[in-house]
């Protein structure tokens, strides 16, 4: 029972929200914030895998998000709608309700492959190459998209609104919210499985002492690549979901600014803490909304917040710890017996 208590809790929470949405208890603005929370949870937990658990320094997470966003969106528009550029629909529009997870996953896979391209040169040698390369890749992805006119270039890409409408035509439920809940749950579940296995803990050994890890039998280069691909793949999935919230994307949404936001979430929540990253993503989404009236000043306030955090609580809310470590009572609910050694 305990083994599934977190699944149950999450399931009921999602159901509650979905019912509230369906019954019009939540206005569109609140729905939007909840959906952004989901996307931000995926982004922060997946970046934490690399920057927190593995102790590397990746600074271009939004680049992978962009890849996923565009791949999923273009696939959907090409397959399920009649479009000026991509011609008539290839598949019946209604089938999108089954195939959306597939195109979403495709976006994730392509983003993971781009992650592999980054990982190969970055992890061949030790040092701070990853930061520089991810920074470059973030810029390259953004300018590449700006210069590909078929997908709208700098003007952006739209048509995902029609996708969402076709879903609603089949069954009228809040589809995007459902996919975001599923994606968020999937992402956290995946990372949790990874970091609690002996296999996945290999990346923590890499962080603590890479030389010792390699000499004691961890294939360090392989582990770093796997973790990095997992991380960028999940960022791609976050991108695909993000694209369907507003039904419109443009390269401007995936700048280094966005990457910085994700990094703030990771450091706010605490390196190497999954629950910390979830909490900080939720909190940060709210802070971002509260600061919205400040407009440009927002970009003074948020870095300031980060500096204060680094000064007064450098390990973040929950550095290297989980909620269950801070509140041991939660263990009774969430940690299966026998797993406590």
């Amino acid at each position: 029972m305990r083994k599934y208590s977190s699944h149950l809790l999450y399931g009921s929470f999602c159901l509650l929200i979905l019912i509230a949405v369906q019954e019009n208890f939540l206005n569109a603005y609140l729905q939007l914030i909840i959906m952004f929370m989901g996307v931000n949870i995926i982004l922060s937990t997946s970046l934490n895998l690399v920057n927190g658990y593995m102790g590397e320094f990746s600074v271009g997470h939004a680049g992978f998000m962009a890849v996923g966003a565009y791949v999923t969106s273009v696939l959907n528009v090409w397959l399920f709608t009649s479009d000026r550029v991509f011609g008539p629909a290839v598949l019946p529009a209604g089938s999108v309700i089954y195939l959306f997870p597939v195109t979403l996953l495709m976006g994730g896979i392509v983003a993971a492959l781009v992650g592999l391209l980054v990982a190969i040169p970055s992890f061949k040698t030790r040092g701070d190459y990853l930061a520089i390369i991810t920074l470059a890749v973030n810029y390259i992805v953004k300018s590449a998209i700006e210069n590909i006119q078929v997908i709208g270039g700098a003007r952006g890409f739209m048509g995902m609104r029609n996708i969402v409408s076709s879903m609603h035509e089949v069954v009228n439920v809040p589809w995007v919210m459902i996919w975001i809940f599923a994606g968020t749950g999937f992402s956290v579940w995946l990372i949790h499985r990874f970091v609690t296995s002996t296999y996945g803990k290999g990346i923590v050994a890499v962080r603590d002492d890479e030389i010792a890890a390699n000499i004691m039998g961890v294939n360090t280069r392989r582990m770093k690549m796997v973790a990095f691909m997992l991380s960028s793949g999940l960022a791609g999935i976050a991108g695909g979901l993000f694209a369907h919230i507003l039904g419109y994307i443009n390269p401007g949404s995936f700048t280094i600014m966005k990457s910085t936001e994700v990094m703030v979430m990771v450091y706010l929540g605490g390196m190497g803490s999954l629950s910390g990253s979830v909490l900080s993503a939720v909190g940060f989404t709210i802070i971002l909304e509260l600061f919205r009236p400040l407009q440009v000043i927002k970009w003074v306030a948020i870095p300031l917040l980060l500096i204060l955090l680094m000064l007064f609580r450098p390990e973040g809310l929950l550095g290297h710890r989980e909620l269950t470590d801070v509140f041991p009572r939660l263990r009774r609910i969430f940690v299966p017996q026998g797993k406590r050694a």
Partner: peptide, 21 residues
């Protein structure tokens, strides 16, 4: 000594079996 310091003693003993996973 090069133990992994943010992992517990038990985890240290487990991870060194990585090559036999």
């Amino acid at each position: 000594i090069r133990l992994w310091n943010t992992l517990t003693v038990f985890e240290n003993l487990c991870i060194s079996q990585h090559s036999k996973l």
